[in-house]
Design a binder for these strands. Structure first.
Lengths: 237, 237
DNA sequence: CCAAAAGTGTTAACTGTACACCCATGT
DNA sequence: ACATGGGTGTACAGTTAACACTTTTGG
């Protein structure tokens, strides 16, 4: 089945440089990561891409995120640059291109050594419409504790992203980016417990969060359950 | 004075990528940064360089640091990647090359957009023998509070390095890398006060540091001053 | 009226800060 | 002996963690 090959315009991009995104979401009391799977291959990887020659790196990350989630203005943070000379091999990428009927130029930089900028993103799970990329068969959410084998050093990148997320969590209450616009204190607590992977005390957690003065009580949420209705909160400003 | 031009071998390096190092030292109760000044131009910048095509980025940073300080195994940490599309201009570099009798290839990537990986390094001031780079006239220590104007966005990079250093200081007692092998508690305290730019209590500082259990008392240091001789400490392990 | 979970008052434990005193040293 | 700075005991304050009680909801 030889058909016309598809050619990528490598001249548009900064050679040897890529952006990889660890996209976190929260659903069903689980912390999830959005992962595409390459067409025809049993190969999962982080959503990533190249940086255009006149594009800010952060803009490239935003572009890649929008392509996969359909969401604009995503919360994201650069967390590390992965620069080991032997961290990737061109062989894997060649398999990907072959499986997708792309032309392979053996001399291209895309098969050589890569430096990758790691970004982590926090998105409201309910707002995301996952989209597959040009090489992908599917793009799915995976439980952080049950990730498939990942290509290259993407498992290491994911782990470092998670560690950074944990480290930064208290600082700025960034976890809110993973929740819908309004939420109960219980939901926020479960989110924190999930990310930190340890139980928190209900009473003290509530006080600590409220003492930051960045949440506003909106209304009561009647769940139909046989207990006091919790308040809904939203982020101020 | 037209002589034979010097040509750099750009093919050795990853294009559009550079490493910039903020080298911290401590001397005379002042926090210092090591800065080279370009020959014939009134232009100060951070020590930096390119990454060879088969070289780990961190190895590149180590190489750049060794070239300037003569010290091996320097403590260094990657702290940020600076990736704005318009952060540098080729014009400044052209002036530098002109002033140094280097050949200029107008089409070279070195005059285009750069992505720079920022590393900060902590060195024992007394072990450093500063060396000038190929474009430099001098390479000198500058007080962090009295920096000259810096080229490109190097002032911003330096500030971010300092902020990161302050943020990380408590975590791992990394400040020790700025001192000689043995030191008094007073010296360590002054170092911390200098970095954090605020006074600390002598008694509580001593207890806090010792409670970390990573310092060992070595011997007393008789200074010849009319007071109790302080202990010398060294880092355990 | 009861069970379940939300919200809050109170207390205990811990940590960090401040003050004090004693010790060693050279003049 | 005394002035100077190092080392440490202790008390106070502020913060965080633990416990307990009250409130609200639907069965």
């Amino acid at each position: 089945m030889e058909s016309e090959k598809i050619i990528i315009d490598e001249g548009k991009f900064i050679p040897h440089l890529s952006v990889d995104c660890v996209i976190f979401g929260f659903h069903g009391e689980q912390l999830k990561v959005l992962l595409p799977k390459v067409k025809s291959l049993d190969l999962w990887s982080l959503p990533g891409g190249y940086v255009m020659k006149d594009e800010d790196i952060e803009a490239a990350a935003q572009r890649i995120l929008e392509e996969r989630t359909g969401v604009t203005d995503i919360y994201l943070e650069q967390f590390y640059i992965f620069g080991k000379a032997n961290r990737s091999t061109g062989e894997t990428l060649k398999k990907v291109l072959l499986a997708n009927n792309f032309a392979i130029d053996e001399k291209s930089w895309v098969f050589e050594r890569f430096v990758s900028v790691g970004y982590y993103a926090l998105v409201d799970f309910s707002k995301v419409n996952t989209k597959i990329g040009i090489y992908d068969e599917v793009c799915e959410w995976h439980d952080i504790h049950q990730l498939p084998d990942l290509a290259f050093d993407h498992a290491e990148i994911t782990l470092k992203a998670l560690e950074t997320l944990r480290f930064m969590l208290d600082d700025k209450l960034i976890g809110l980016n993973l929740l819908p616009d309004t939420f109960t204190m219980k939901e926020l607590q479960i989110l924190y417990e999930t990310i930190l992977d340890k139980p928190l005390r209900r009473d003290n957690f509530q006080r600590k969060i409220l003492s930051m003065g960045i949440l506003e009580r909106v209304e009561k949420k009647f769940t139909g359950a046989a207990h006091k209705a919790p308040y809904l909160y939203k982020f101020i400003k």
